[in-house]
Simulated scan of single mutants.
Amino acid sequence: MSERIGVLGGGSWGTALAILLAKKGYDVHMWLRDEEQLIDMNRTRINNKYLPDIILPPNLKLTNDLEEVNFNKDAIVLSVGTHGVREVLNNCKSYIKKDQIIVNVSKGIENESLLRISQIVEEIVPNSRYAILSGPSHAEEVAKNMPTTVVSSSGIKEVAEYVQDLFITPEFRVYANPDVIGVELGGALKNVIALGAGISDGLGCGDNTKAALMTRGIFEMARLGEKMGAQGSTFLGLAGIGDLIVTCTSMLSRNRRAGILIGQGIKTSDAIKQIGMVVEGIKTTKSTFDLSKIYNVDMPITEEIYGVLYEGKDVKYSVSNLMIRDKKHEMENIVLENNNLW
Protein backbone atom coordinates (compact mmCIF):
# COMPACT_ATOMS: atom_id res chain seq x y z
CA MET A 1 0.00 0.00 0.00
CA SER A 2 1.63 3.25 -1.16
CA GLU A 3 -0.72 5.93 0.10
CA ARG A 4 -0.75 9.71 -0.27
CA ILE A 5 -1.70 11.39 3.00
CA GLY A 6 -2.46 15.00 3.93
CA VAL A 7 -2.22 16.07 7.59
CA LEU A 8 -4.09 19.20 8.66
CA GLY A 9 -2.36 20.63 11.72
CA GLY A 10 1.23 20.96 12.91
CA GLY A 11 0.81 20.48 16.64
CA SER A 12 2.42 17.68 18.60
CA TRP A 13 -0.16 15.00 17.70
CA GLY A 14 -0.42 15.90 14.02
CA THR A 15 3.37 15.93 13.77
CA ALA A 16 3.76 12.59 15.56
CA LEU A 17 1.25 10.90 13.26
CA ALA A 18 2.76 12.51 10.17
CA ILE A 19 6.16 11.12 11.22
CA LEU A 20 4.65 7.66 11.81
CA LEU A 21 3.01 7.65 8.38
CA ALA A 22 6.11 8.95 6.63
CA LYS A 23 8.26 6.29 8.27
CA LYS A 24 5.90 3.70 6.77
CA GLY A 25 6.96 5.00 3.37
CA TYR A 26 3.83 7.00 2.51
CA ASP A 27 3.87 10.31 0.67
CA VAL A 28 2.90 12.71 3.47
CA HIS A 29 2.12 16.42 3.30
CA MET A 30 1.54 18.34 6.54
CA TRP A 31 -0.25 21.70 6.61
CA LEU A 32 0.74 24.34 9.18
CA ARG A 33 -1.22 27.52 9.81
CA ASP A 34 1.75 29.42 11.28
CA GLU A 35 4.16 30.58 8.55
CA GLU A 36 7.00 31.23 11.00
CA GLN A 37 6.68 27.68 12.30
CA LEU A 38 6.69 26.39 8.72
CA ILE A 39 9.89 28.28 7.89
CA ASP A 40 11.61 27.05 11.05
CA MET A 41 10.59 23.43 10.49
CA ASN A 42 11.72 23.50 6.87
CA ARG A 43 15.07 24.90 7.99
CA THR A 44 15.72 22.65 10.99
CA ARG A 45 13.54 19.61 10.07
CA ILE A 46 12.36 19.65 13.71
CA ASN A 47 9.09 20.84 15.23
CA ASN A 48 10.86 22.91 17.85
CA LYS A 49 7.60 24.22 19.29
CA TYR A 50 5.93 20.87 20.02
CA LEU A 51 8.35 17.93 19.47
CA PRO A 52 11.84 19.43 19.85
CA ASP A 53 13.74 16.13 20.07
CA ILE A 54 12.37 14.45 16.91
CA ILE A 55 13.82 14.82 13.40
CA LEU A 56 11.30 14.82 10.56
CA PRO A 57 11.69 12.11 7.91
CA PRO A 58 12.84 13.40 4.50
CA ASN A 59 9.59 12.26 2.80
CA LEU A 60 7.46 14.41 5.12
CA LYS A 61 6.72 17.60 3.19
CA LEU A 62 5.47 20.80 4.81
CA THR A 63 3.13 23.45 3.42
CA ASN A 64 0.75 26.24 4.42
CA ASP A 65 -1.31 25.77 1.24
CA LEU A 66 -4.62 24.00 1.88
CA GLU A 67 -5.07 23.07 -1.76
CA GLU A 68 -1.64 21.43 -1.88
CA VAL A 69 -2.16 19.38 1.29
CA ASN A 70 -5.49 18.05 0.00
CA PHE A 71 -4.59 17.54 -3.66
CA ASN A 72 -4.57 13.95 -4.90
CA LYS A 73 -4.55 12.47 -1.38
CA ASP A 74 -6.09 9.14 -0.39
CA ALA A 75 -6.74 10.27 3.17
CA ILE A 76 -6.79 13.51 5.12
CA VAL A 77 -5.81 13.47 8.80
CA LEU A 78 -7.69 16.17 10.71
CA SER A 79 -5.49 17.21 13.64
CA VAL A 80 -6.88 20.65 14.45
CA GLY A 81 -8.15 21.76 17.85
CA THR A 82 -11.93 21.32 18.07
CA HIS A 83 -12.50 25.09 18.14
CA GLY A 84 -10.73 25.40 14.76
CA VAL A 85 -12.19 22.38 12.92
CA ARG A 86 -15.13 24.24 11.38
CA GLU A 87 -12.98 27.07 10.00
CA VAL A 88 -10.33 24.76 8.54
CA LEU A 89 -12.91 22.46 6.91
CA ASN A 90 -14.78 25.39 5.43
CA ASN A 91 -11.53 26.72 3.97
CA CYS A 92 -10.56 23.41 2.34
CA LYS A 93 -13.90 21.70 1.56
CA SER A 94 -13.67 22.62 -2.11
CA TYR A 95 -10.42 20.64 -2.34
CA ILE A 96 -11.70 17.49 -0.63
CA LYS A 97 -12.81 14.82 -3.09
CA LYS A 98 -15.77 12.53 -2.51
CA ASP A 99 -13.71 9.36 -2.14
CA GLN A 100 -11.08 10.83 0.21
CA ILE A 101 -11.16 9.45 3.73
CA ILE A 102 -11.19 11.98 6.58
CA VAL A 103 -9.46 10.69 9.73
CA ASN A 104 -10.17 12.85 12.74
CA VAL A 105 -7.60 12.63 15.55
CA SER A 106 -8.80 15.60 17.64
CA LYS A 107 -10.82 15.19 20.84
CA GLY A 108 -13.55 17.61 21.78
CA ILE A 109 -17.11 18.90 21.41
CA GLU A 110 -17.87 22.23 19.73
CA ASN A 111 -19.00 24.76 22.35
CA GLU A 112 -21.52 26.71 20.30
CA SER A 113 -23.32 23.85 18.54
CA LEU A 114 -22.53 20.98 20.99
CA LEU A 115 -21.69 18.87 17.93
CA ARG A 116 -19.16 16.08 17.86
CA ILE A 117 -16.49 16.39 15.17
CA SER A 118 -18.11 13.71 12.98
CA GLN A 119 -21.27 15.85 12.95
CA ILE A 120 -19.30 18.97 11.99
CA VAL A 121 -17.61 17.04 9.18
CA GLU A 122 -20.98 15.72 7.95
CA GLU A 123 -22.40 19.26 7.97
CA ILE A 124 -19.54 20.75 5.95
CA VAL A 125 -18.49 17.75 3.83
CA PRO A 126 -21.71 15.69 3.50
CA ASN A 127 -21.51 11.92 2.93
CA SER A 128 -17.78 11.89 3.62
CA ARG A 129 -15.90 8.67 4.42
CA TYR A 130 -15.17 9.54 8.05
CA ALA A 131 -13.19 7.78 10.76
CA ILE A 132 -11.81 8.71 14.16
CA LEU A 133 -8.52 7.52 15.63
CA SER A 134 -8.49 7.71 19.43
CA GLY A 135 -7.12 6.10 22.57
CA PRO A 136 -4.33 6.44 25.16
CA SER A 137 -1.60 8.02 23.06
CA HIS A 138 0.80 10.79 24.04
CA ALA A 139 2.36 12.35 20.94
CA GLU A 140 5.78 12.46 22.59
CA GLU A 141 5.78 8.69 23.12
CA VAL A 142 4.40 7.83 19.67
CA ALA A 143 7.09 9.99 18.05
CA LYS A 144 9.71 7.96 19.95
CA ASN A 145 8.20 4.63 18.80
CA MET A 146 7.06 3.61 22.28
CA PRO A 147 4.44 0.83 22.15
CA THR A 148 0.95 2.38 21.88
CA THR A 149 -2.52 0.99 21.22
CA VAL A 150 -5.47 2.95 19.84
CA VAL A 151 -8.87 2.51 18.19
CA SER A 152 -10.05 3.25 14.64
CA SER A 153 -13.80 3.84 14.44
CA SER A 154 -16.12 4.48 11.51
CA GLY A 155 -19.73 3.86 10.59
CA ILE A 156 -18.35 2.09 7.51
CA LYS A 157 -16.48 -1.12 8.35
CA GLU A 158 -14.17 -0.87 5.32
CA VAL A 159 -13.16 2.66 6.31
CA ALA A 160 -12.37 1.67 9.90
CA GLU A 161 -10.25 -1.23 8.63
CA TYR A 162 -8.53 0.97 6.02
CA VAL A 163 -7.50 3.40 8.77
CA GLN A 164 -6.42 0.44 10.91
CA ASP A 165 -4.11 -0.75 8.11
CA LEU A 166 -2.97 2.80 7.37
CA PHE A 167 -1.60 3.48 10.85
CA ILE A 168 -0.70 0.10 12.28
CA THR A 169 2.98 -0.66 12.91
CA PRO A 170 4.84 -3.06 15.21
CA GLU A 171 4.86 -0.26 17.82
CA PHE A 172 1.45 1.30 17.07
CA ARG A 173 -1.34 -1.26 17.35
CA VAL A 174 -4.79 -0.29 16.06
CA TYR A 175 -8.10 -1.98 16.87
CA ALA A 176 -11.32 -1.37 14.89
CA ASN A 177 -14.54 -0.30 16.62
CA PRO A 178 -17.95 0.52 15.03
CA ASP A 179 -19.10 2.88 17.83
CA VAL A 180 -18.22 6.33 16.48
CA ILE A 181 -20.30 8.17 19.08
CA GLY A 182 -18.70 6.30 21.98
CA VAL A 183 -15.15 6.68 20.68
CA GLU A 184 -15.62 10.41 20.07
CA LEU A 185 -17.23 11.03 23.44
CA GLY A 186 -14.64 8.93 25.27
CA GLY A 187 -11.82 10.99 23.81
CA ALA A 188 -13.55 14.28 24.63
CA LEU A 189 -15.05 13.63 28.07
CA LYS A 190 -11.93 12.09 29.61
CA ASN A 191 -10.25 15.51 29.33
CA VAL A 192 -12.83 16.93 31.76
CA ILE A 193 -12.08 14.23 34.33
CA ALA A 194 -8.33 14.73 33.76
CA LEU A 195 -8.72 18.39 34.70
CA GLY A 196 -10.39 17.22 37.91
CA ALA A 197 -7.56 14.77 38.58
CA GLY A 198 -5.06 17.57 38.09
CA ILE A 199 -7.00 19.90 40.38
CA SER A 200 -6.95 17.13 42.99
CA ASP A 201 -3.16 16.87 42.62
CA GLY A 202 -2.79 20.63 42.85
CA LEU A 203 -4.74 20.64 46.10
CA GLY A 204 -2.38 18.01 47.51
CA CYS A 205 -4.92 15.20 47.62
CA GLY A 206 -3.68 11.63 47.37
CA ASP A 207 -4.01 8.54 45.22
CA ASN A 208 -7.29 7.59 46.93
CA THR A 209 -8.87 10.79 45.67
CA LYS A 210 -7.63 10.35 42.13
CA ALA A 211 -8.79 6.74 41.98
CA ALA A 212 -12.25 7.83 43.09
CA LEU A 213 -12.37 10.63 40.50
CA MET A 214 -11.32 8.31 37.70
CA THR A 215 -13.71 5.52 38.65
CA ARG A 216 -16.75 7.72 39.19
CA GLY A 217 -15.67 9.78 36.19
CA ILE A 218 -15.95 6.84 33.81
CA PHE A 219 -19.46 6.25 35.17
CA GLU A 220 -20.38 9.84 34.28
CA MET A 221 -18.89 9.50 30.82
CA ALA A 222 -20.76 6.27 30.11
CA ARG A 223 -24.07 7.60 31.44
CA LEU A 224 -23.99 10.59 29.10
CA GLY A 225 -22.63 8.49 26.24
CA GLU A 226 -25.44 5.95 26.44
CA LYS A 227 -28.05 8.72 26.49
CA MET A 228 -26.45 10.10 23.32
CA GLY A 229 -26.48 6.75 21.52
CA ALA A 230 -23.08 5.28 22.39
CA GLN A 231 -22.39 1.72 23.49
CA GLY A 232 -21.56 1.50 27.20
CA SER A 233 -18.88 -1.13 26.53
CA THR A 234 -16.84 1.39 24.51
CA PHE A 235 -16.12 3.31 27.72
CA LEU A 236 -14.53 0.18 29.18
CA GLY A 237 -12.05 0.00 26.30
CA LEU A 238 -9.10 1.96 24.95
CA ALA A 239 -11.12 5.03 23.92
CA GLY A 240 -12.74 5.21 27.37
CA ILE A 241 -10.97 3.94 30.48
CA GLY A 242 -7.67 3.51 28.60
CA ASP A 243 -7.50 7.14 27.54
CA LEU A 244 -8.82 8.26 30.92
CA ILE A 245 -6.02 6.46 32.79
CA VAL A 246 -3.20 7.92 30.72
CA THR A 247 -4.64 11.45 30.76
CA CYS A 248 -5.31 11.50 34.52
CA THR A 249 -1.96 10.06 35.59
CA SER A 250 0.73 11.42 33.25
CA MET A 251 2.57 14.72 33.37
CA LEU A 252 2.58 14.61 29.58
CA SER A 253 -1.17 15.34 29.80
CA ARG A 254 -1.72 19.04 29.28
CA ASN A 255 -5.22 18.74 30.83
CA ARG A 256 -3.81 17.24 34.02
CA ARG A 257 -1.03 19.85 34.14
CA ALA A 258 -3.55 22.67 33.68
CA GLY A 259 -5.67 21.16 36.44
CA ILE A 260 -2.67 21.06 38.81
CA LEU A 261 -2.08 24.77 38.25
CA ILE A 262 -5.76 25.58 38.82
CA GLY A 263 -5.74 23.47 41.99
CA GLN A 264 -2.78 25.51 43.20
CA GLY A 265 -4.84 28.68 42.86
CA ILE A 266 -3.71 29.91 39.44
CA LYS A 267 -6.40 31.48 37.23
CA THR A 268 -7.62 29.35 34.34
CA SER A 269 -6.44 31.85 31.71
CA ASP A 270 -2.96 31.96 33.26
CA ALA A 271 -2.83 28.16 33.48
CA ILE A 272 -3.54 27.93 29.73
CA LYS A 273 -0.73 30.39 29.03
CA GLN A 274 1.70 28.38 31.14
CA ILE A 275 0.82 25.15 29.34
CA GLY A 276 1.42 26.86 25.98
CA MET A 277 -0.76 24.41 24.02
CA VAL A 278 -4.46 23.76 23.55
CA VAL A 279 -6.12 22.47 26.73
CA GLU A 280 -9.19 20.86 25.17
CA GLY A 281 -10.73 19.90 28.51
CA ILE A 282 -11.47 23.50 29.46
CA LYS A 283 -13.79 24.11 26.50
CA THR A 284 -15.08 20.54 26.65
CA THR A 285 -16.14 21.04 30.27
CA LYS A 286 -18.64 23.68 29.15
CA SER A 287 -19.93 21.53 26.27
CA THR A 288 -20.27 18.50 28.57
CA PHE A 289 -22.06 20.50 31.26
CA ASP A 290 -24.52 21.84 28.67
CA LEU A 291 -25.10 18.35 27.24
CA SER A 292 -25.72 16.93 30.72
CA LYS A 293 -28.57 19.41 31.15
CA ILE A 294 -30.04 18.71 27.72
CA TYR A 295 -29.96 14.93 28.26
CA ASN A 296 -30.85 15.18 31.97
CA VAL A 297 -27.81 13.17 33.10
CA ASP A 298 -26.42 13.46 36.63
CA MET A 299 -22.72 14.40 36.28
CA PRO A 300 -21.57 15.75 39.67
CA ILE A 301 -17.82 15.75 38.91
CA THR A 302 -18.34 17.62 35.65
CA GLU A 303 -20.68 20.05 37.41
CA GLU A 304 -18.12 20.89 40.07
CA ILE A 305 -15.30 21.32 37.51
CA TYR A 306 -17.61 23.58 35.49
CA GLY A 307 -18.26 25.62 38.65
CA VAL A 308 -14.53 26.07 39.22
CA LEU A 309 -13.74 27.02 35.62
CA TYR A 310 -16.77 29.12 34.71
CA GLU A 311 -18.40 30.26 37.95
CA GLY A 312 -15.38 31.02 40.11
CA LYS A 313 -16.11 28.33 42.72
CA ASP A 314 -13.42 27.59 45.28
CA VAL A 315 -11.80 24.25 44.43
CA LYS A 316 -11.76 23.12 48.07
CA TYR A 317 -15.48 23.81 48.34
CA SER A 318 -16.08 21.75 45.19
CA VAL A 319 -14.24 18.73 46.65
CA SER A 320 -16.35 19.04 49.79
CA ASN A 321 -19.52 19.18 47.68
CA LEU A 322 -18.64 15.87 46.04
CA MET A 323 -17.92 14.16 49.34
CA ILE A 324 -21.10 15.24 51.17
CA ARG A 325 -23.58 14.42 48.40
CA ASP A 326 -26.51 12.20 49.33
CA LYS A 327 -25.44 8.59 49.79
CA LYS A 328 -25.98 6.27 46.83
CA HIS A 329 -25.52 2.66 45.72
CA GLU A 330 -22.43 2.25 43.55
CA MET A 331 -24.20 0.16 40.90
CA GLU A 332 -27.48 2.08 40.93
CA ASN A 333 -28.88 0.53 37.78
CA ILE A 334 -28.34 -3.01 39.06
CA VAL A 335 -29.96 -2.20 42.38
CA LEU A 336 -32.96 -0.59 40.70
CA GLU A 337 -33.39 -3.48 38.27
CA ASN A 338 -33.20 -6.05 41.11
CA ASN A 339 -34.94 -4.07 43.83
CA ASN A 340 -36.88 -7.04 45.11
CA LEU A 341 -33.87 -9.35 45.19
CA TRP A 342 -31.47 -7.25 47.31
Rank of each mutant, 00 (worst) to 15 (best):
E171P: 04
F172M: 02
V174E: 03
Y175L: 15
V180R: 02
G182D: 10
K190M: 11
K190L: 08
K190R: 06
K190V: 03
K190G: 04
K190W: 03
N191R: 13
A194N: 01
I199W: 00
S200V: 12
G202F: 06
L203I: 02
L203S: 03
D207G: 04
N208H: 14
T209Y: 08
T209N: 11
T209F: 13
A211Q: 03
L213D: 05
M214L: 00
T215Y: 09
R216Y: 15
F219S: 12
F219E: 08
A222L: 10
R223N: 14
L224N: 04
K227A: 15
A230R: 03
S233H: 08
L236Q: 09
G237S: 05
A239W: 09
I241M: 08
G242I: 04
V246E: 02
M251V: 14
R254H: 13
R256A: 06
A258T: 09
L261D: 06
I262Q: 02
Q264L: 10
Q264M: 14
G265H: 04
I266F: 12
A271S: 14
Q274K: 15
I275Q: 03
G276K: 00
V279A: 12
E280W: 09
G281C: 04
G281P: 01
I282P: 09
I282A: 12
T284L: 09
T284E: 02
S287Y: 04
T288D: 09
D290P: 09
S292R: 06
Y295C: 05
N296V: 07
N296S: 06
I301D: 06
